[in-house]
Write a protein that binds this DNA or RNA. Structure first.
Lengths: 216, 216, 216, 216
DNA sequence: GATGAATGAGGGTTCATTCAT
DNA sequence: TATGAATGAACCCTCATTCAT
């Protein structure tokens, strides 16, 4: 088994280097997202990012162009995940199937990637000065979803609601478990590292939304 | 030329001076909340606060002890408003009356005081490092509300839900209109200074919640 | 004699402060010119300027906006001196009077203000990237002088020469005693702080130029 | 895939390698002179030199010991050219022949090698901190020329002048066309890449000097 | 009470150079 | 020989805060 490796050593070597470099950039981005989530673009310090990544500030600056560029890249990365998150979701099996799946995915993402959600929320809270530069398709995707919701109402599958506001409300509820995770734990009597009950949260939001949309 | 100044000085009593000083502190606090909402504690600059207040940085520092202390005071102020906000709300007229009123008050506050809500959300998002030091009663109030909601379910007035999570969800939806106000405008096709439709928002959230809580 | 001072104390106080601030800016500019003369814009360090001015780097930055702006201001200052330098020079008494005076003034300036001349020469040597932004009138003044020289030739007062190149040559010779002052001392066997013989230099350049322009 | 490299390696003899290495050093030196001319020793960056040479910064540092050493080598190189420049000049055919030739050579060098002249001038302007370490013979050569000029005056071939200052003045005028080349173009109404009129410049300087030295 | 001046600490970033391969 | 990675020192500049009047 050593032979093939030896033969392709040169290429493997390069691949290793490239992979290592890529991994370090990923590592840096992850550290940056935590720092940006906690302090925003202006409050984040490259020293803080370097510390979180476990590297020196100089080394960090060897891998990035600037704090701003790193922020933009992190934001782009998050919007990319956002879009990927709904790959394969059932669009044609009616509101119940779709919304259950959508809510479950969003809650899971909030619980597993709170820093990403917080950084994103922080950007939005600041008026999204950089968001639209890196995510051109957000409005289009939202409008598409609005048309889908409107069609459900047309077919009598759900109560007639404002489709845009419904999306806002689902976002707000699902993202809350990242934004206010520490408060949720505090109010629930959990310790700072105890996990939140994902299934319970999903069930509660889903029930509220599906019942809330029921035709009267 | 000194005479008019001396005369006007005599006319200003101690109470006036104290009031004037208090007004300036209020003015500074308001400016600080906007700056803290936009940049967080670390990202906020005392120069930025001074600029927003229309005073010099030196003068600002004459009136405050430190940026941290100003942040804490602003946070205390916000939690005070939060508590005041539900003065006189009907606790005994059933869920529909209470929740309609509660949602309406919260939405109105988000639309009229977005900076306060954003600063508060930022603090929570950071893990609320200072919040609990300045707001001891938050958990108690939340638990009280949970008991009220539980009692409604006991009486068959609403579907049985997790009372704590219901509160989280109502907070999330109502505060969203401060947190993501700019995105809401963007997605709605509004200009950055166009007002959001308060009545419509209140109606949509209220309908979703009340329907969502209906006993099946 | 104390009375008037006491009466105008307030104004004198303010004037003193303003004057002190102005003097410090002058002092900083002088230090900067020496540093810029020695190292150019890019090679100059604000630490070096602060050291030469005998103040801390932080204090320096309190008085300037940026290194670039300080460079531009210094350059503007120098071009201003340049223009002032020829106030009251006799334009209408023929080439001999004019050129003698002009050469004497330029040599004197080079010997008394070598750093100013060196900084200026450095800027020109780099292609004058900032010079034309701060000195719009240089070309016009040069062309005016060219017309004057041309007129002298028309009147047969001097040999016909290229007026522009004559100016270049006079500049070059007179400014050389700032640019290569240390070499001039070294070749003359003088110590680094010995003064160059101004009268002798003026006499030699003047003789070369006036003889060189004589009609044959 | 390694074969062609190995083959070509065999073809490259030691002399070739050494020559290639020497050519690269020459190339680097040329790039360095341009960078040093524009920014001085302290303002020059090894990155800038590497860019001008079309190689990586790492490769540059593989070929040089330090920026200082490269500066010193470039300066040595220039003083070598300086000395070579007057090979074969007629020392014994009188002032007119000598000075005409000398001025023509110096102007030509300034026009063809402006970076070399500018870098040299910059060094001199800084007080020549490194020049005398690399160019021991400069004073001797200058004094020799002074004796020659003095002899011409003794023989009545030229007016009696200070021989040292005469040399300064010829240097200043001829080198000016490298030092202030951009200003000369600007004042002449030429574009930044238009050539200066060498013959005209030589003629003007020569006429001024020869006339200026004429016995009255 | 109020304000220009001042400052030590730290901000993001680039530098010439060395390391490791 | 050649090169990507790494680094300590230094860069210009801003920060929250205090001083001095």
């Amino acid at each position: 088994m050593a032979a093939p490796e030896a033969l392709s050593l040169r290429h493997v070597g390069r691949g290793d280097l490239a992979r290592k470099r890529g991994e370090l950039r990923d590592h840096i981005r992850a550290a940056a997202i935590v720092e940006f989530a906690e302090h925003g673009l202006r409050g984040a310090s490259t020293q803080g990012i370097a510390d979180r990544a476990g590297i020196s500030k100089t080394k960090l600056h060897y891998y990035i162009d600037s704090k701003e560029e790193l922020y933009a890249e992190a934001l782009t990365h998050i919007t990319g995940i956002w879009a990927d998150l709904f790959e394969g979701i059932a669009l044609d099996k009616g509101p119940e199937a779709f919304l259950s799946d959508y809510i479950a995915r969003k809650v899971r993402f909030s619980l597993t990637h709170p820093a990403e959600v917080r950084m994103f929320t922080g950007e939005v809270m600041r008026g999204a000065p950089m968001l639209h530069a890196v995510w051109a398709g957000s409005r289009e995707a939202t409008l598409r979803a609005s048309r889908l919701i409107g069609a459900w109402a047309d077919q009598g599958l759900i109560r007639r609601v404002d489709p845009l506001l419904l999306q806002f409300h689902i976002w707000a509820m699902t993202e809350a478990y990242a934004v206010m995770a520490s408060e949720a734990r505090f109010m629930s009597g959990l310790g700072p590292d105890d996990p939140l009950d994902e299934a319970h949260i999903v069930a509660e939001i889903t029930a509220l939304v599906l019942n809330g949309l029921r035709v009267q």
